[in-house]
Design a protein around this nucleic acid. Sequence first.
DNA 1: TCCTTCGTTGAACGGCTGTTCATTGAACGA
DNA 2: TCGTTCAATGAACAGCCGTTCAACGAAGGA
Lengths: 182, 182
Amino acid sequence: MTRAERRRSTEARILAAAARLFAESGYADTTIRAVAAAAGVNPGLVMHYFGSKEELFLRVARARPSGPLEGEPEGVVEELLDRLAASMADEPVESLAVLRSMLTHPGASEAAAEGAARYRAQLAEALPAADAGVRAALVSAVLIGVVLGRHLLKLEELRDAPPEQIAALLRPCLRSLTGADG
Amino acid sequence: MTRAERRRSTEARILAAAARLFAESGYADTTIRAVAAAAGVNPGLVMHYFGSKEELFLRVARARPSGPLEGEPEGVVEELLDRLAASMADEPVESLAVLRSMLTHPGASEAAAEGAARYRAQLAEALPAADAGVRAALVSAVLIGVVLGRHLLKLEELRDAPPEQIAALLRPCLRSLTGADG
DNA sequence: TCCTTCGTTGAACGGCTGTTCATTGAACGA
DNA sequence: TCGTTCAATGAACAGCCGTTCAACGAAGGA
Protein backbone atom coordinates (compact mmCIF):
# COMPACT_ATOMS: atom_id res chain seq x y z
CA MET A 1 0.00 0.00 0.00
CA THR A 2 1.43 3.31 -1.11
CA ARG A 3 1.93 6.18 1.27
CA ALA A 4 -0.78 8.38 -0.29
CA GLU A 5 -3.26 5.52 -0.11
CA ARG A 6 -2.56 4.95 3.55
CA ARG A 7 -3.01 8.64 4.17
CA ARG A 8 -6.37 8.79 2.43
CA SER A 9 -7.51 5.60 4.09
CA THR A 10 -6.62 6.83 7.57
CA GLU A 11 -8.26 10.18 6.95
CA ALA A 12 -11.44 8.47 5.77
CA ARG A 13 -11.43 6.21 8.82
CA ILE A 14 -11.17 9.24 11.10
CA LEU A 15 -14.00 11.02 9.28
CA ALA A 16 -16.26 7.97 9.51
CA ALA A 17 -15.55 7.54 13.21
CA ALA A 18 -16.14 11.25 13.81
CA ALA A 19 -19.47 11.21 11.95
CA ARG A 20 -20.67 8.25 13.98
CA LEU A 21 -19.61 9.74 17.30
CA PHE A 22 -20.96 13.23 16.56
CA ALA A 23 -24.29 11.60 15.65
CA GLU A 24 -24.33 9.45 18.78
CA SER A 25 -23.09 11.91 21.35
CA GLY A 26 -23.27 15.41 19.91
CA TYR A 27 -20.45 17.91 19.62
CA ALA A 28 -19.51 18.55 23.24
CA ASP A 29 -19.51 14.92 24.36
CA THR A 30 -17.47 13.73 21.41
CA THR A 31 -13.78 13.94 22.30
CA ILE A 32 -10.85 14.00 19.92
CA ARG A 33 -9.44 11.11 21.94
CA ALA A 34 -12.58 9.03 21.41
CA VAL A 35 -12.58 9.72 17.67
CA ALA A 36 -8.92 8.76 17.49
CA ALA A 37 -9.50 5.57 19.47
CA ALA A 38 -12.47 4.58 17.30
CA ALA A 39 -10.34 5.14 14.22
CA GLY A 40 -7.43 3.20 15.73
CA VAL A 41 -5.17 6.21 15.61
CA ASN A 42 -3.29 8.65 17.82
CA PRO A 43 -5.16 11.77 19.03
CA GLY A 44 -2.34 13.98 17.80
CA LEU A 45 -2.86 12.69 14.29
CA VAL A 46 -6.45 13.88 14.23
CA MET A 47 -5.25 17.36 15.09
CA HIS A 48 -2.47 17.11 12.52
CA TYR A 49 -4.92 16.25 9.75
CA PHE A 50 -7.86 18.49 10.62
CA GLY A 51 -6.31 21.31 12.60
CA SER A 52 -8.95 21.48 15.31
CA LYS A 53 -12.06 19.78 16.62
CA GLU A 54 -14.14 22.55 15.06
CA GLU A 55 -12.70 21.96 11.58
CA LEU A 56 -13.12 18.22 11.97
CA PHE A 57 -16.78 18.80 12.71
CA LEU A 58 -17.20 21.13 9.74
CA ARG A 59 -15.66 18.50 7.46
CA VAL A 60 -18.29 16.05 8.71
CA ALA A 61 -21.12 18.57 8.54
CA ARG A 62 -20.43 19.96 5.06
CA ALA A 63 -23.91 19.93 3.56
CA ARG A 64 -23.98 17.52 0.65
CA PRO A 65 -26.30 18.97 -1.97
CA SER A 66 -29.34 16.70 -1.98
CA GLY A 67 -30.62 17.02 -5.53
CA PRO A 68 -33.00 19.62 -6.91
CA LEU A 69 -36.56 19.94 -5.65
CA GLU A 70 -38.93 21.20 -8.31
CA GLY A 71 -42.15 20.58 -10.16
CA GLU A 72 -45.73 20.48 -8.96
CA PRO A 73 -46.38 20.35 -5.19
CA GLU A 74 -47.82 16.82 -5.57
CA GLY A 75 -44.53 15.58 -7.04
CA VAL A 76 -42.47 17.46 -4.47
CA VAL A 77 -44.37 15.79 -1.65
CA GLU A 78 -43.70 12.35 -3.15
CA GLU A 79 -40.02 13.22 -3.55
CA LEU A 80 -39.83 14.33 0.11
CA LEU A 81 -41.58 11.17 1.27
CA ASP A 82 -39.16 9.05 -0.77
CA ARG A 83 -36.16 10.74 0.80
CA LEU A 84 -37.69 10.37 4.25
CA ALA A 85 -38.31 6.66 3.68
CA ALA A 86 -34.73 6.25 2.45
CA SER A 87 -33.32 7.96 5.52
CA MET A 88 -35.45 5.67 7.67
CA ALA A 89 -34.28 2.46 6.05
CA ASP A 90 -30.64 2.91 7.03
CA GLU A 91 -29.26 5.07 9.82
CA PRO A 92 -28.39 8.40 8.19
CA VAL A 93 -25.18 8.95 10.10
CA GLU A 94 -24.08 12.26 8.59
CA SER A 95 -27.52 13.86 8.77
CA LEU A 96 -27.86 12.78 12.37
CA ALA A 97 -24.43 14.14 13.19
CA VAL A 98 -25.42 17.51 11.77
CA LEU A 99 -28.87 17.47 13.33
CA ARG A 100 -27.75 16.44 16.80
CA SER A 101 -24.81 18.82 16.78
CA MET A 102 -26.92 21.72 15.55
CA LEU A 103 -28.73 21.37 18.83
CA THR A 104 -25.53 20.99 20.82
CA HIS A 105 -22.91 23.15 19.21
CA PRO A 106 -23.36 26.92 18.81
CA GLY A 107 -21.37 27.08 15.58
CA ALA A 108 -23.04 24.05 14.03
CA SER A 109 -26.33 25.79 13.43
CA GLU A 110 -24.64 28.60 11.57
CA ALA A 111 -22.54 26.18 9.57
CA ALA A 112 -25.60 24.29 8.39
CA ALA A 113 -27.91 27.30 8.25
CA GLU A 114 -26.87 28.44 4.80
CA GLY A 115 -27.48 25.08 3.17
CA ALA A 116 -30.73 24.58 5.06
CA ALA A 117 -32.00 28.02 4.08
CA ARG A 118 -31.21 27.37 0.42
CA TYR A 119 -33.08 24.09 0.74
CA ARG A 120 -36.14 25.79 2.18
CA ALA A 121 -36.00 28.51 -0.48
CA GLN A 122 -35.93 25.85 -3.18
CA LEU A 123 -38.89 24.16 -1.55
CA ALA A 124 -40.75 27.45 -1.19
CA GLU A 125 -40.29 28.19 -4.87
CA ALA A 126 -42.14 24.99 -5.75
CA LEU A 127 -45.15 26.06 -3.70
CA PRO A 128 -47.87 28.20 -5.26
CA ALA A 129 -49.28 29.76 -2.10
CA ALA A 130 -48.54 33.30 -1.01
CA ASP A 131 -47.24 32.11 2.35
CA ALA A 132 -44.85 29.66 0.69
CA GLY A 133 -41.99 30.62 3.01
CA VAL A 134 -43.78 29.68 6.22
CA ARG A 135 -45.16 26.55 4.58
CA ALA A 136 -41.70 25.43 3.47
CA ALA A 137 -40.32 26.04 6.97
CA LEU A 138 -43.17 24.02 8.48
CA VAL A 139 -42.50 21.14 6.09
CA SER A 140 -38.85 21.19 7.13
CA ALA A 141 -39.83 21.31 10.80
CA VAL A 142 -42.20 18.37 10.40
CA LEU A 143 -39.61 16.23 8.61
CA ILE A 144 -36.94 17.12 11.14
CA GLY A 145 -39.35 16.25 13.93
CA VAL A 146 -40.02 12.82 12.47
CA VAL A 147 -36.34 11.96 11.90
CA LEU A 148 -35.56 13.29 15.35
CA GLY A 149 -38.33 11.29 16.98
CA ARG A 150 -37.28 8.08 15.28
CA HIS A 151 -33.51 8.24 15.50
CA LEU A 152 -32.61 10.53 18.37
CA LEU A 153 -35.53 10.50 20.79
CA LYS A 154 -36.21 6.90 19.84
CA LEU A 155 -39.97 7.14 20.30
CA GLU A 156 -40.89 3.46 20.36
CA GLU A 157 -43.94 3.69 18.12
CA LEU A 158 -41.95 5.58 15.50
CA ARG A 159 -38.95 3.29 15.65
CA ASP A 160 -41.03 0.15 15.29
CA ALA A 161 -43.32 1.38 12.52
CA PRO A 162 -42.39 0.46 8.93
CA PRO A 163 -41.25 3.46 6.83
CA GLU A 164 -44.12 2.98 4.38
CA GLN A 165 -46.72 3.32 7.13
CA ILE A 166 -45.13 6.52 8.35
CA ALA A 167 -44.90 7.87 4.82
CA ALA A 168 -48.56 7.00 4.19
CA LEU A 169 -49.72 8.76 7.36
CA LEU A 170 -47.55 11.77 6.59
CA ARG A 171 -48.72 12.15 2.97
CA PRO A 172 -52.00 14.03 3.57
CA CYS A 173 -50.25 16.06 6.24
CA LEU A 174 -47.55 17.24 3.82
CA ARG A 175 -50.06 17.70 1.00
CA SER A 176 -52.05 20.11 3.13
CA LEU A 177 -48.93 21.99 4.21
CA THR A 178 -47.71 22.37 0.63
CA GLY A 179 -51.13 23.26 -0.66
CA ALA A 180 -51.12 20.17 -2.88
CA ASP A 181 -54.65 19.37 -1.78
CA GLY A 182 -56.15 22.45 -3.41
CA MET B 1 -35.86 38.70 55.68
CA THR B 2 -35.95 35.47 57.63
CA ARG B 3 -33.37 32.74 57.11
CA ALA B 4 -35.83 30.26 55.57
CA GLU B 5 -37.00 32.94 53.16
CA ARG B 6 -33.49 33.72 52.03
CA ARG B 7 -32.85 30.03 51.53
CA ARG B 8 -35.94 29.54 49.36
CA SER B 9 -35.23 32.71 47.43
CA THR B 10 -31.65 31.70 46.65
CA GLU B 11 -32.71 28.19 45.67
CA ALA B 12 -35.35 29.58 43.32
CA ARG B 13 -32.82 31.96 41.78
CA ILE B 14 -30.45 29.05 41.11
CA LEU B 15 -33.23 26.95 39.56
CA ALA B 16 -34.31 29.80 37.29
CA ALA B 17 -30.75 30.44 36.16
CA ALA B 18 -30.20 26.72 35.56
CA ALA B 19 -33.38 26.39 33.50
CA ARG B 20 -32.37 29.31 31.30
CA LEU B 21 -28.83 28.06 30.78
CA PHE B 22 -29.83 24.45 30.15
CA ALA B 23 -32.30 25.71 27.53
CA GLU B 24 -29.73 27.99 25.91
CA SER B 25 -26.69 25.76 25.95
CA GLY B 26 -27.76 22.19 26.65
CA TYR B 27 -26.51 19.97 29.44
CA ALA B 28 -22.84 19.56 28.61
CA ASP B 29 -22.13 23.21 27.88
CA THR B 30 -23.91 24.45 30.99
CA THR B 31 -21.42 24.63 33.84
CA ILE B 32 -22.15 24.73 37.54
CA ARG B 33 -19.92 27.78 37.68
CA ALA B 34 -22.01 29.57 35.05
CA VAL B 35 -25.26 28.73 36.83
CA ALA B 36 -23.80 30.00 40.09
CA ALA B 37 -22.56 33.20 38.47
CA ALA B 38 -25.94 33.83 36.82
CA ALA B 39 -27.62 33.34 40.18
CA GLY B 40 -25.08 35.60 41.93
CA VAL B 41 -23.91 32.80 44.16
CA ASN B 42 -20.90 30.61 44.93
CA PRO B 43 -20.48 27.42 42.87
CA GLY B 44 -20.08 25.38 46.03
CA LEU B 45 -23.53 26.47 47.16
CA VAL B 46 -25.15 24.98 44.08
CA MET B 47 -23.54 21.64 44.91
CA HIS B 48 -24.56 21.99 48.55
CA TYR B 49 -28.20 22.55 47.64
CA PHE B 50 -28.61 20.11 44.76
CA GLY B 51 -25.91 17.51 45.36
CA SER B 52 -24.73 17.23 41.80
CA LYS B 53 -25.15 18.71 38.34
CA GLU B 54 -27.27 15.71 37.42
CA GLU B 55 -29.73 16.27 40.26
CA LEU B 56 -29.88 19.98 39.49
CA PHE B 57 -30.88 19.11 35.94
CA LEU B 58 -33.50 16.62 37.10
CA ARG B 59 -35.03 19.28 39.35
CA VAL B 60 -35.33 21.54 36.31
CA ALA B 61 -36.56 18.77 34.02
CA ARG B 62 -39.22 17.25 36.29
CA ALA B 63 -42.16 16.86 33.94
CA ARG B 64 -44.95 19.11 35.06
CA PRO B 65 -48.22 17.34 34.27
CA SER B 66 -49.81 19.28 31.40
CA GLY B 67 -53.51 18.66 31.92
CA PRO B 68 -55.59 15.79 30.57
CA LEU B 69 -56.08 15.24 26.87
CA GLU B 70 -59.38 13.65 26.03
CA GLY B 71 -62.56 13.86 24.00
CA GLU B 72 -63.14 13.75 20.27
CA PRO B 73 -60.10 14.03 17.95
CA GLU B 74 -61.36 17.39 16.67
CA GLY B 75 -61.32 18.80 20.19
CA VAL B 76 -57.94 17.26 20.95
CA VAL B 77 -56.44 18.91 17.87
CA GLU B 78 -57.75 22.30 18.98
CA GLU B 79 -56.36 21.73 22.47
CA LEU B 80 -52.95 20.84 21.02
CA LEU B 81 -52.98 23.92 18.77
CA ASP B 82 -53.88 26.10 21.74
CA ARG B 83 -50.97 24.75 23.77
CA LEU B 84 -48.64 25.19 20.81
CA ALA B 85 -49.75 28.79 20.34
CA ALA B 86 -49.24 29.44 24.05
CA SER B 87 -45.72 28.01 23.97
CA MET B 88 -44.99 30.23 20.98
CA ALA B 89 -46.15 33.43 22.60
CA ASP B 90 -43.58 33.35 25.39
CA GLU B 91 -40.29 31.45 25.46
CA PRO B 92 -41.06 28.14 27.17
CA VAL B 93 -37.84 27.97 29.16
CA GLU B 94 -38.40 24.70 31.01
CA SER B 95 -39.67 22.81 27.97
CA LEU B 96 -36.73 24.02 25.94
CA ALA B 97 -34.32 23.03 28.67
CA VAL B 98 -35.74 19.51 28.64
CA LEU B 99 -35.92 19.32 24.87
CA ARG B 100 -32.43 20.61 24.20
CA SER B 101 -30.91 18.53 26.96
CA MET B 102 -32.71 15.39 25.84
CA LEU B 103 -30.60 15.70 22.73
CA THR B 104 -27.44 16.46 24.67
CA HIS B 105 -27.54 14.46 27.84
CA PRO B 106 -27.81 10.65 27.86
CA GLY B 107 -29.79 10.55 31.09
CA ALA B 108 -32.17 13.34 30.12
CA SER B 109 -34.04 11.28 27.56
CA GLU B 110 -34.69 8.56 30.09
CA ALA B 111 -35.73 11.08 32.70
CA ALA B 112 -38.31 12.62 30.39
CA ALA B 113 -39.22 9.41 28.57
CA GLU B 114 -41.72 8.18 31.12
CA GLY B 115 -43.72 11.39 31.14
CA ALA B 116 -43.57 11.70 27.38
CA ALA B 117 -44.71 8.10 26.87
CA ARG B 118 -47.65 8.63 29.20
CA TYR B 119 -48.49 11.76 27.23
CA ARG B 120 -48.46 9.85 23.93
CA ALA B 121 -50.50 7.02 25.43
CA GLN B 122 -53.12 9.52 26.58
CA LEU B 123 -53.16 11.05 23.14
CA ALA B 124 -53.40 7.64 21.48
CA GLU B 125 -56.40 6.75 23.62
CA ALA B 126 -58.30 9.71 22.21
CA LEU B 127 -57.74 8.51 18.64
CA PRO B 128 -60.19 6.07 17.07
CA ALA B 129 -57.88 4.56 14.44
CA ALA B 130 -56.28 1.14 14.78
CA ASP B 131 -52.81 2.62 14.34
CA ALA B 132 -53.41 5.17 17.09
CA GLY B 133 -49.98 4.57 18.61
CA VAL B 134 -48.03 5.55 15.51
CA ARG B 135 -50.37 8.46 14.88
CA ALA B 136 -49.89 9.80 18.39
CA ALA B 137 -46.11 9.50 18.06
CA LEU B 138 -46.22 11.35 14.73
CA VAL B 139 -48.29 14.14 16.26
CA SER B 140 -45.70 14.46 19.03
CA ALA B 141 -42.89 14.46 16.48
CA VAL B 142 -44.56 17.17 14.40
CA LEU B 143 -45.18 19.41 17.41
CA ILE B 144 -41.63 18.89 18.67
CA GLY B 145 -40.34 19.70 15.20
CA VAL B 146 -42.22 22.99 15.11
CA VAL B 147 -41.15 24.11 18.59
CA LEU B 148 -37.61 23.04 17.77
CA GLY B 149 -37.59 24.88 14.46
CA ARG B 150 -38.90 28.05 16.00
CA HIS B 151 -36.97 28.26 19.24
CA LEU B 152 -33.81 26.21 18.84
CA LEU B 153 -33.01 26.11 15.13
CA LYS B 154 -34.47 29.59 14.80
CA LEU B 155 -35.76 29.04 11.26
CA GLU B 156 -36.40 32.64 10.22
CA GLU B 157 -39.75 32.02 8.55
CA LEU B 158 -41.04 30.19 11.63
CA ARG B 159 -39.73 32.73 14.09
CA ASP B 160 -41.27 35.67 12.25
CA ALA B 161 -44.64 34.08 11.55
CA PRO B 162 -47.50 34.89 13.97
CA PRO B 163 -48.57 31.89 16.10
CA GLU B 164 -52.10 32.00 14.66
CA GLN B 165 -50.80 31.58 11.11
CA ILE B 166 -48.71 28.58 12.12
CA ALA B 167 -51.65 27.07 14.01
CA ALA B 168 -53.92 27.60 11.00
CA LEU B 169 -51.50 25.91 8.62
CA LEU B 170 -50.94 23.07 11.05
CA ARG B 171 -54.64 22.40 11.70
CA PRO B 172 -55.44 20.28 8.61
CA CYS B 173 -52.09 18.53 9.05
CA LEU B 174 -52.91 17.48 12.62
CA ARG B 175 -56.51 16.67 11.70
CA SER B 176 -55.34 14.20 9.09
CA LEU B 177 -52.80 12.67 11.47
CA THR B 178 -55.38 12.21 14.21
CA GLY B 179 -58.00 10.95 11.80
CA ALA B 180 -60.23 13.90 12.66
CA ASP B 181 -60.92 14.45 8.97
CA GLY B 182 -62.79 11.17 8.60
C1' DT C 1 -26.05 37.70 76.35
C1' DC C 2 -23.92 33.40 74.78
C1' DC C 3 -24.05 29.36 72.06
C1' DT C 4 -25.88 26.98 68.25
C1' DT C 5 -27.48 26.68 63.62
C1' DC C 6 -26.85 27.15 58.94
C1' DG C 7 -26.58 29.95 54.61
C1' DT C 8 -22.62 31.14 52.23
C1' DT C 9 -17.85 31.60 50.84
C1' DG C 10 -13.00 30.66 48.87
C1' DA C 11 -9.54 27.72 47.95
C1' DA C 12 -8.26 23.48 46.57
C1' DC C 13 -8.39 18.54 44.47
C1' DG C 14 -8.08 15.17 40.64
C1' DG C 15 -9.59 14.29 36.12
C1' DC C 16 -10.52 15.14 31.46
C1' DT C 17 -10.22 18.33 27.63
C1' DG C 18 -8.14 20.42 23.12
C1' DT C 19 -3.82 21.23 21.56
C1' DT C 20 1.44 21.23 20.82
C1' DC C 21 5.80 19.28 19.71
C1' DA C 22 9.86 16.60 19.49
C1' DT C 23 10.63 12.03 17.89
C1' DT C 24 10.29 7.54 15.36
C1' DG C 25 10.30 4.63 11.43
C1' DA C 26 8.83 3.16 7.13
C1' DA C 27 7.88 4.58 2.20
C1' DC C 28 10.02 7.24 -1.29
C1' DG C 29 13.27 9.59 -5.05
C1' DA C 30 18.01 9.77 -6.79
C1' DT D 1 22.35 2.52 -1.20
C1' DC D 2 21.72 6.86 1.08
C1' DG D 3 19.30 10.92 2.41
C1' DT D 4 14.70 12.91 2.40
C1' DT D 5 9.88 12.99 3.21
C1' DC D 6 6.06 12.38 5.94
C1' DA D 7 2.47 9.38 8.27
C1' DA D 8 2.16 8.32 12.91
C1' DT D 9 3.39 8.28 17.84
C1' DG D 10 3.72 9.50 22.94
C1' DA D 11 4.46 12.62 26.33
C1' DA D 12 3.47 16.92 27.92
C1' DC D 13 1.06 21.54 28.51
C1' DA D 14 -2.46 24.83 30.26
C1' DG D 15 -7.28 25.31 31.14
C1' DC D 16 -11.71 24.18 32.58
C1' DC D 17 -14.68 20.88 34.65
C1' DG D 18 -17.52 18.77 38.81
C1' DT D 19 -16.84 18.22 43.35
C1' DT D 20 -15.07 18.65 48.30
C1' DC D 21 -14.21 20.88 52.57
C1' DA D 22 -12.68 23.83 56.16
C1' DA D 23 -13.94 28.22 57.62
C1' DC D 24 -16.69 32.67 58.24
C1' DG D 25 -20.58 35.37 59.87
C1' DA D 26 -25.08 36.59 60.56
C1' DA D 27 -29.81 34.80 62.16
C1' DG D 28 -32.21 32.13 65.82
C1' DG D 29 -33.16 30.12 70.30
C1' DA D 30 -32.28 29.93 75.49
